[in-house]
C-alpha cells in the first residue's frame, strides 16, 4: 500500500504548491497556468479515490475549458504591469502567524481526539444505496435527473441570470449620437 500513499503526497503537494504559487506569482498568465497545474493535482486525487468520472471532468471542464477562457480574457485585456502594493509588514506577519496557529491548532485537534477513525480506502459495497458511490457517468446522470432535478433546474436559472447580468454590466450604455438632418 505504499504506492497510493506516495501518489497521494505527490498530487496533494502539487495541488497545494501550485495553489500557493498562484497567489504569489506576479504575472497573470503564469498564475492562470499554475491554476491549471493545481487542477491537474486535484484530478489526480480524484483518480486515487476511484472517482474516475470526476477526474475526467476536472481536466476537461476546469483545466480545459474554464482556464482557457481565463487565459483568453487575461491576454485580451492585456494588463500592463501595474505597480505592486505590498502589504504592510505588520499585517503580513500577523496574517501568516494567524494562519500557522490555525493550521497547527486544527492539526493538533484532529490528532488529539479520535475524530477521524481510519478507514481503508476502498469502494463501499452498498447495493441498496443508489447514490452511494457514483464513480461512473451513468450514476451521476441518474442522480442529477431524478433526486437532484430541482437543484439542477435552479442552476439553469442561475446560469441564465448570470448571463443576463454579464450582458447588462458589460454592454456599453453610451448611446451613439443620433444622425441629425444636417449631416444627411
Amino acid at each position: 500500500m505504499i504506492l497510493p500513499d506516495v501518489l497521494f503526497v505527490l498530487f496533494a503537494s502539487l495541488t497545494l504548491g501550485a495553489g500557493l504559487l498562484v497567489v504569489l506569482s506576479r504575472n497573470t498568465v503564469t498564475a492562470a497556468l499554475l491554476v491549471v497545474l493545481s487542477f491537474v493535482g486535484i484530478s489526480g486525487l480524484f483518480l486515487l479515490l476511484d472517482a474516475t468520472f470526476l477526474a475526467a471532468l476536472q481536466i476537461l471542464v476546469y483545466a480545459g475549458a474554464v482556464m482557457v477562457l481565463f487565459l483568453f480574457i487575461v491576454m485580451l485585456l492585456d494588463v500592463e504591469k501595474t505597480s505592486h502594493i505590498l502589504p504592510k509588514k505588520v499585517s503580513l506577519v500577523l496574517s501568516v502567524s494567524a494562519l500557522l496557529v490555525m493550521v497547527i491548532g486544527v492539526t493538533y485537534l484532529l490528532m488529539e481526539s479520535p475524530s477521524l477513525p481510519s478507514v481503508d480506502l476502498m469502494p463501499l459495497d452498498m447495493p441498496d444505496a443508489p447514490l452511494g458511490f457514483p464513480a461512473h457517468a451513468k450514476a451521476f446522470g441518474y442522480a442529477l435527473f431524478t433526486k437532484y432535478l430541482l437543484p439542477l433546474q435552479t442552476v439553469g436559472f442561475l446560469l441564465l441570470m448570470a448571463m443576463v447580468g454579464v450582458v447588462v454590466l458589460s454592454k456599453s450604455t453610451a448611446k451613439a449620437p443620433e444622425p441629425t438632418s444636417e449631416t444627411k
Binding site: 437532484y148 437543484p151 435552479t154 442552476v155 442561475l158 448570470a162 447580468g165
Partner: peptide, 16 residues
Amino acid sequence: VMFFVALETVTIGFYV
C-alpha cells in the same frame, strides 16, 4: 445541495 445552489443563486444575483 439545495441549500448551496439556492444560496449561490441569491449571491450571484446580488453581484449583478
